[in-house]
Design a protein around this nucleic acid. Structure first.
Length: 666
RNA sequence: GGGCCGGUAGUCGAGCCAGGACCAAGACGGCGGCCUGCGGAGCCGCAAAUCGUGGGUUCGAAUCCCACCCGGCCCGCCA
């Protein structure tokens, strides 16, 4: 069943939406006229909701299943009701965009659009609105913060994180085009253990200037340091267990874990012999590496000058690398938020004391706990949160017994911070964060921010697996975003070289870059965000149907036509575009505004991928079957050119929304 | 133990929220065709699906409800 979409928003045209509105209005008129002549009591039905897309065009362009509802009441056959309905509409309505209304077995009322009128309206609208065609503006614009990526600044961005980055970026583009005031934020999680480990290793090495890409360079140091520290700790733990005569099971578990880490260390040693060797010697000189790392964390939280300077210095080096990667992927941020700032500005402390005063906290072994379950029951949040009566809400530890905060606590403070400058907040994060996101919402209720709780959206990202397993940076089982882009670029470059050898080298390189980044973005965006998928090179490197290259090729072909024609004249009318391939193309163009609005309102960029692919497909079909530059009838030629121009406009708009860049030649 | 998400041709994947012409879109892979006029990264055709399983609701279920099965994930004084 189709959804209703507003007819006109701002002064932007919505051709198919206008057709839909006309169908709705005549259907309502037919319904009430039938109501008068019938003896039965008619209920108030959502008539717009009965309009749906028919399976193919032999049934017209929109169909209503209203008769099935009425047949129940009138105790008649649906097809008879449909006939009566179609007839009564014929009497009451004057038609504009509708060409015909027919009853059809088993009981649908089919509406066919008037091809001439729809073509005229669609192509004139695209011509008039240009790059703004279809970008229907919302009636209720909101200041919106989209937080995404927020990769831990300890190692390079891998393809799993990149998925969140690409979706977050596309989401921001879509919402902005819809008329919302959107800002993208990157959360720098710098007060956790990972950044401290990284800074510890970096300091030990004497703060070297990065060789190669900064995030890769520092990431290497992080991996080696983390592994060596972990091994030291495990060795101590096993020794302690032996001393205290712990159970064999406990000792075995730790030993097994230790063996695994030793294996990882061996891998790292062979990959980075120099760093491994040096760090290994340096760390062994430290009597208690773990303590050194803890001290870094604690001093940083307190903003101790030397430590703060060090931590920020290292984190910034990594972030430089992130920015380079993200820029390459056409992803940009309006704001970078440091987690440490939340502590230093007292926001975390203020939140904790407010929660403390709420009566929903309790003390457990010196740690401060939030009784989430109690709050859920008190405020009756199960329905609001959409969870079953048996969903368990474990308590949330807000403060460690040493008084330091934990990540969820800081995340609550952070989300509140985002609301300081926004009416709506969208968090683009992995599906595994579901419970944590619930906890944030519940904390919002406790602190009296229920309005914000309603405007707080969680956009879950399903994992990308590697050979059926979770990616793990420490185990070296991961693919970086840079790797993916490099590989795709080299593949795109060789394709361009092969197909367009006559283009200058510079153009070929730029074209390959566009094709490559678009291919990567499209491959990620064309599958729904929540689904977890296996990373497959062939999919990213696919330049055939259902890929960004396929869409770009439609654009390139249209460029070829226009280039060949040289000059372009205005057609007098648009009445000659009667071929099925032309009509199919017009219909697709007419549906773009509705598709866009639905994608933006449902937070679903994937819908636009499917649309872009479909539009390109229709164009390729048209291109094969229809001549343009060599038709002798000039009027027909210019009308077809108008169609080509409209397709180009819409392709470019959709591509922009998804962050794909189109090349004129490829 | 409790929960969340997913399960659609050999593979990938729309449709599910808002049930209707579904004998289920599209792609990859397979098979067979199409360049003496706009670039073949294309087009046309063929083969391929117990819509995870079993019940239920309904005139009608891939879609809603219940139970179960499989896969991923979560339930830390980690982040």
């Amino acid at each position: 069943m189709a959804q209703t979409t507003e007819h006109k928003q701002g002064d932007r045209a919505n051709p198919f939406g206008s057709f839909r509105l006309e169908c709705e209005s005549v259907l309502k008129a037919g319904y009430s006229s039938l109501k008068k002549t019938s003896g039965h009591a008619f209920p108030d039905l959502d008539i717009a909701a009965t309009l749906e897309d028919p399976p193919n065009q032999t049934f017209g362009h929109l169909a209503s299943s209203l008769s099935f509802e009425l047949a129940k009441i009138q105790k008649k056959k649906p097809i008879d009701v449909a006939k009566a309905l179609a007839e009564s509409i014929g009497h009451v309505a004057k038609l504009d965009l509708i060409e015909s209304i027919e009853a059809s077995e088993p009981g649908y009322v089919n509406f066919r659009a008037n091809p001439g009128r729809l073509t005229e309206l669609t192509l004139r609208s695209v011509e008039r609105d240009g790059s703004e065609y279809g970008l229907l503006k919302t009636h209720s614009p909101e200041k919106t913060v989209v937080e995404h990526t927020s990769a831990n600044p300890a190692r390079p961005i891998h393809i799993g994180t990149a998925k969140g980055a690409i979706f977050g970026d596309a989401l921001a583009r879509l919402l902005a085009a819809r008329g919302h005031n959107v800002r993208t934020h990157f959360y720098i999680d710098d007060t956790g253990r990972q950044v401290a480990i990284m800074a510890y290793g970096y300091k030990l090495l004497g703060e070297p200037t990065p060789k190669g890409k900064p995030d890769h360079f520092i990431g290497k140091i992080y991996s080696v340091t983390a592994t060596l520290v972990e091994i030291e700790e495990l060795k101590k733990r096993v020794a302690l267990l032996r001393q205290t005569k712990a159970s064999d099971a406990d000792i075995n578990a730790q030993t097994k874990s230790l063996d695994e880490w030793v294996g990882i260390a061996a891998d790292l040693e062979s990959k980075y012999p120099e760093e491994f060797d040096r760090l290994s010697k340096l760390i062994s000189k430290d009597p208690d590496p773990e303590k050194s790392i803890q001290q870094l964390i604690q001093k940083y939280e307190k903003k101790e000058p030397d430590t703060s300077a060090l931590m920020r210095r290292v984190a910034r080096i990594i972030l430089t690398g992130f920015e380079e990667t993200l820029r390459r992927a056409r992803i940009r941020f309006d704001q970078w938020d440091w987690e440490s700032d939340l502590l230093w500005t007292g926001r975390v402390a203020a939140l904790v004391s407010q929660l403390k005063g709420s009566g929903f906290t309790f003390n457990q072994g010196g740690a401060l706990e939030l009784d989430v379950a109690k709050a859920v029951e008190k405020f009756g949040l199960r329905e609001t949160l959409g969870v079953s009566p048996t969903f368990e809400f474990p308590p949330l530890t807000l403060l460690r017994s040493d008084g330091t905060s934990l990540y969820p606590t800081r995340d609550i403070a952070y989300t509140l911070y985002k609301f300081e400058s926004a009416e709506r907040v969208i968090n683009v994060i992995g599906t595994e964060q579901l419970l944590a996101q619930f906890q944030v919402k519940v904390a919002f209720w406790i602190t009296g921010h229920q309005k914000e709780a309603e405007k707080f959206n969680y956009f879950p990202i399903g994992q990308i697996m590697l050979e059926g397993q979770r990616m793990s940076a420490r185990r070296g089982r991961y693919v970086t975003f840079d790797q993916v882009m490099d590989e795709t670029l080299s593949r795109a470059r060789s394709e361009v070289d092969r197909r367009s050898p006559s283009l200058p080298d510079e153009i070929r390189q730029r074209t390959a870059e566009r094709i490559a980044i678009s291919a990567v973005r499209y491959a990620i965006l064309c599958v729904e965000a929540v689904k977890s998928t296996n990373f497959v090179w062939d999919k990213v490197l696919n330049f055939e149907a259902n890929s960004a290259a396929f869409i770009n090729y439609a654009y390139t072909r249209s460029s070829g036509i226009l280039r060949k024609l040289g000059r372009i004249a205005e057609p007098k009318t648009l009445g000659l575009l009667k071929e099925p391939v032309e009509q199919a193309l017009v219909l697709e163009l007419s549906k773009f505004p509705e598709t866009f609005a639905n994608a933006a309102d449902d937070l679903n960029p994937t819908l636009l991928c499917l649309y872009a692919n479909l539009l390109a497909q229709r164009f390729h079909e048209f291109y094969e079957k229809s001549d343009i530059s060599h038709v002798s009838n000039d009027e027909l030629k210019w009308q077809r050119v108008a169609l080509v121009l409209a397709v180009r406009t819409v392709l470019k708009t959709v591509a922009g929304l998804l962050g794909l860049e189109l090349a004129e030649r490829m």
